[in-house]
Amino acid sequence: MFTKQNLLATVVAAVAMFVLGFLIWGVATVDFFEGHTLTDAMKEEPDFPMLILSNLIAAFALSSVYGKWARGYHSFGGGFQFGLWIGVFVGLGMGLLWYATSEFMDLTGHLVEAVLDIVYYGIIGAVIALMYKATHPKEGQA
């Protein structure tokens, strides 16, 4: 669990999650989601230390699960596929659960969020896979 591969993948994925999350939800889609928000529960300014901690925890969990899932075979495509399934779980599974039980966004907002989650986690999965591949012991090294 605390291998060099996992820890390096965790750090790089946490940075990618923070930057990509900011670009997607903090810049590119702000206006779209304002138009589909039913109840605005957002803080005026995010709690950045907690945001960084949450990205580290999520990246560690994703990297740890990926390490078991990949079984030693690491590729961009395999990592993207791993992340895609995480995105389906988060975006569609949890997103539609939130739609069914809360009034944060309308259905269009939740469906667009699901697509964004699938792409976002696909990219994060690919980043994790590439870090595992880059730090994988070479033949004769163990």
Rank of each mutant, 00 (worst) to 15 (best):
T3D: 05
K4E: 08
K4R: 14
Q5K: 01
N6I: 14
L7C: 12
T10I: 13
V12W: 04
A13Q: 01
A16P: 14
M17F: 07
M17E: 08
W25N: 14
V27L: 13
T29V: 10
V30F: 15
F32D: 09
E34Q: 14
G35Y: 07
G35F: 01
G35K: 08
G35R: 10
L38G: 10
T39W: 09
E44A: 12
P46F: 00
D47L: 06
P49H: 01
M50E: 15
L51E: 12
L51D: 04
I52E: 08
L53H: 07
N55K: 06
I57T: 04
A58S: 14
A61D: 12
A61V: 15
Y66W: 11
Y66E: 10
G67I: 00
G67W: 02
K68W: 14
W69L: 04
A70L: 03
G72V: 11
G72E: 11
S75F: 11
G77I: 09
F80T: 02
G83I: 01
G83L: 02
L84V: 01
G87P: 06
F89A: 00
M94K: 15
G95M: 01
L96N: 10
L97Q: 07
W98P: 03
S102K: 07
S102R: 07
M105T: 00
L107V: 03
H110R: 00
L111G: 14
A114K: 03
L116S: 01
L116I: 06
L116N: 01
Y120R: 03
Y121C: 02
G122Q: 02
I124F: 02
I124W: 04
A126Y: 05
A126G: 04
A126W: 01
A126E: 04
A126V: 06
V127S: 06
V127H: 02
A129F: 00
M131T: 05
Y132V: 11
K133C: 05
A134Q: 12
T135F: 07
H136D: 15
E139G: 07
G140Y: 09
Q141V: 13
